[in-house]
Design a protein around this nucleic acid. Structure first.
Length: 320
DNA sequence: ACCTGTCAAGTCTGG
DNA sequence: CCAGACTTGACAGGT
């Protein structure tokens, strides 16, 4: 099994490289000249895109092939204050440059909208903004020239006191999505509401790939079925995508606060999981969600690479 | 340069 | 019906 590792949005090693700089809505509203205010947002977005490219170069230097873009690359883009504003044409060049770099170096990239994107919502307005968010992220991937192997990963959402009807809404809303959006979706089990089993069932029914989050499964295990038992079905959801299955790993911050992310990743549970699935899984991509970002990646890879069962292929790729 | 309260956004719980 | 928790990087305003 070939395993690649990646991290989320920002690096603890590359200084002053935030890809999520922003402006508050209050500040935006204070600027009388709307064109000037929008121009400022474009400048911030350019800086975010530039910093993202710096991060990709850093990733390349350390053999990191998996990366999640910040969901805040373009500030306030789906805010009501900027209604009717379309900054993507103005940002075509930096987006294209990012995408070219990703393609040139064979990287796997994705987006993961914030928890305000909820397709299960009964509220019309929330659904509208959720769809706008998704559409925006897909447009950014398109502006980068990245094909449908670059995904947008979402959770199913809330229950509103009735999981059955929430799931029914989820199904019909996914089916109503524009094809270009739907084909980019992946579904992830969450840490409170929709278990890995429930998420898997929805993914199978909708024909979407499922991202298994091992930490979420640990704190929201449902019936308690082991992740490796679900794995053959989860793996099967990736069959026709042209990309390896992806999982998320992180560790509880503390016993008191098990859902929060720790600085680093405990290697042991992951090593055990990988041992259980290695035989049936030729390739796997692992997204590390730890506070110490790429440093957590380096430590985890070093730990695993030191074990007998693993062989280091490059700085962020292992063979098991 | 550094500190602290605040920030666009949703959902859920509890009062 | 409303306040607070959840969670998080960065802003904004102050020293």
């Amino acid at each position: 099994m070939l395993i690649r590792f990646g991290y989320v949005a920002m690096s603890v090693h590359v200084a002053h490289a935030s890809p999520s700089k922003t402006m508050t809505a209050t500040q935006f509203a204070k600027i009388a000249d709307r064109e000037a205010a929008l121009g400022k947002l474009v400048r911030i977005a350019e800086e975010n895109l530039h910093n993202t490219l710096r991060l990709l170069r850093h990733n390349r230097a350390y053999d990191i092939h998996v990366f999640r873009f910040s969901s805040k690359l373009v500030p306030l883009v789906t805010h009501p204050l900027t209604e009717g504003w379309d900054p993507i044409p103005r940002l075509a060049e930096p987006f294209r440059e990012l995408g070219d770099y990703v393609i040139q170096h064979g990287m796997r990239t994705s987006f993961h909208p914030d928890h305000f994107t909820v397709l299960t919502t009964p509220r019309e307005e929330v659904l509208r903004t959720s769809l706008a968010d998704l559409a925006h992220q897909v447009r950014m991937l398109e502006a980068m020239g990245l094909d449908e192997r670059s995904k947008c990963n979402i959770h199913i959402g809330g229950t509103y006191g009735d999981k059955e009807s929430a799931l029914a809404r989820f199904h019909s809303r996914v089916n109503d999505l524009p094809a270009a959006v739907r084909r980019r979706l992946t579904l992830e089990n969450d840490d409170k509401t929709y278990t890995a089993e429930e998420t898997l069932q929805a993914a199978e029914e909708l024909g979407l790939p499922m991202v298994l989050d091992l930490h979420h499964h640990q704190v929201n295990p449902g019936s308690g079925v082991a992740a490796e038992e679900l794995w053959p079905r989860i793996r099967a959801t990736w069959k026709d995508t042209g990309i390896p299955p992806k999982i998320h790993v992180s560790s509880p911050k503390s016993e008191k606060d098990v859902r929060a992310h720790a600085d680093f990743v405990e290697p042991e549970p992951l090593a055990a999981f990988l041992g259980a699935i290695a035989a049936e899984t030729p390739r796997l991509d692992i997204m590390i969600e730890a506070k110490q970002k790429d440093e957590a990646l380096f430590r985890l890879v070093a730990d695993l690479a030191g074990r007998e069962e693993f062989r280091e292929v490059d700085g962020a790729t292992l063979e098991r």
